[in-house]
Design a protein around this nucleic acid. Structure first.
Lengths: 165, 165
DNA sequence: TCCATATTGAATGTATGCATACGAAATAGT
DNA sequence: ACTATTTCGTATGCATACATTCAATATGGA
C-alpha cells in the first residue's frame, strides 16, 4: 500500500492501533510539513512577545518598519509589501494611529487613498524595538550553524517563490 | 560596523535611502527568518482553504484527527498534542461539538476533566478531508525535490526541538 | 462623454491565538 | 486531616486573519 493510501485509511486503522497501544504519540499531523511550519511560526511569535514585549505585535512592527522605509505609502501597497490582508492592515494601522505612531492623511491625487506616514513617536518606538527584533531572529536560528541557516533560508524562499511568485 | 549594528541604525539610515531612492523594494523585515516563516504559514493556510474548503479550518482538522487517534482524550492533552493553547482549543472543540463532529462528556474519574470523542459524523468529515489535506502537503513542497524536502524537514525539526525542548 | 470595470478603505462576520484570571477540583506536602 | 499548590475548563479582552460586501472613486474603452 502506498504511503498516501495508508494515510487516507488512518481513521479506521488508527483506532485499532490506539486501542491496542494508547501510548503511541505519533499523530498524523505530526508528519505534515504544514504542521511544523505552523509550529515554527508559533515559536517565532512567542519569541517576539518574550523579547519585544506586549508593547508591540509582530504585524505592528512590520507596518511601522514599512512606513518608516516608505514615506507616504498607501494602505493597499503597505499591506501587499508586508504580506497581509488589506482588511487586517486597516485595523492594525488604526491601532497604531490611536497610539500616535502612525498618521493617516487623504491623498490629494486620489481621493480613495489614505496615505500613511510614521510619526516621530512611531520612529522612536521602532528604534526601541528593532534591536530586540533583530536579536530575536538570531535566537530563532541559533540551533543552526551558518551553512544550515543559509540552506534553510534558501529552501523557504524557494517554496515561497513557487507559491507567491 | 557589524551587520547587527547596521540593522539597528536602519531607522535613520533608511530614511535617507528612502528619500534618495523611493523605488527600493527591500524592506528590513524581508531579510528576517521570522518574516518568511510567517509567509510560509500563510501559504499553507491558503492552500488548506483552497483545497479543503471553508467547511473545516486547519485547527479543526487537527483536533478532529487527534480525537480520532486518541479516543476519550481530555482537552488539555489534546491541545498539547496538536500544539495549541488550552483556551483556544476550548472554543474549537465547542464549534466542532455544535456541528456534531465531536462530543464532550464529563470524566467519572476526574470531575474537572471533559473527555472528547469523535462522532460518526465527525469521522466521516475527517475521512472526506484527509485526502485533500495529505495532497496539500505534497503541493506545499512541490517546488523541492526529495532531498530538499528531507533537508527542509530536518532543519524545521531541529529548530523546533531547540525551542520546544 | 458615458459606462462597465477595477480599486480603495471601511464595515461585518467568523475563527483563531494567546495572556490573564477565575472557580472547581485534585494533589502534594506536612 | 489540613493546606498550599496545581491543574482543568471557561470567560474575558485584545489583536490578528481573511472572505465578503459596500460606497466612493478612478480608469479604460466605445
Amino acid at each position: 500500500m502506498s504511503r498516501l493510501a495508508a494515510r487516507q485509511n488512518f481513521v479506521t486503522d488508527a483506532r485499532n492501533v490506539s486501542h491496542a497501544d494508547p501510548c503511541v504519540s505519533d499523530l498524523v499531523i505530526h508528519h505534515m510539513p504544514g504542521h511544523f511550519i505552523r509550529r515554527l511560526q508559533q515559536v517565532a511569535v512567542r519569541l517576539f512577545v518574550a523579547r519585544v514585549g506586549l508593547d508591540m505585535t509582530p504585524v505592528q512592527f512590520a507596518a511601522l518598519a514599512a512606513a518608516a522605509q516608505r514615506p507616504r505609502i498607501d494602505q493597499a501597497r503597505l499591506s501587499a509589501l508586508i504580506g497581509y490582508d488589506r482588511a487586517t492592515i486597516g485595523g492594525v494601522i488604526g491601532r497604531l494611529e490611536s497610539r500616535g505612531w502612525l498618521a493617516r492623511s487623504a491623498s490629494s491625487v486620489d481621493r480613495r487613498v489614505k496615505l500613511v506616514r510614521i510619526t516621530p513617536a512611531g520612529r522612536k518606538a521602532l528604534s526601541r524595538a528593532l534591536p530586540a527584533v533583530s536579536a530575536l531572529q538570531e535566537t530563532l536560528m541559533e540551533s543552526l550553524d551558518a551553512a544550515e541557516r543559509k540552506r534553510f533560508e534558501r529552501l523557504c524562499l524557494k517554496i515561497l517563490a513557487h507559491h507567491l511568485g
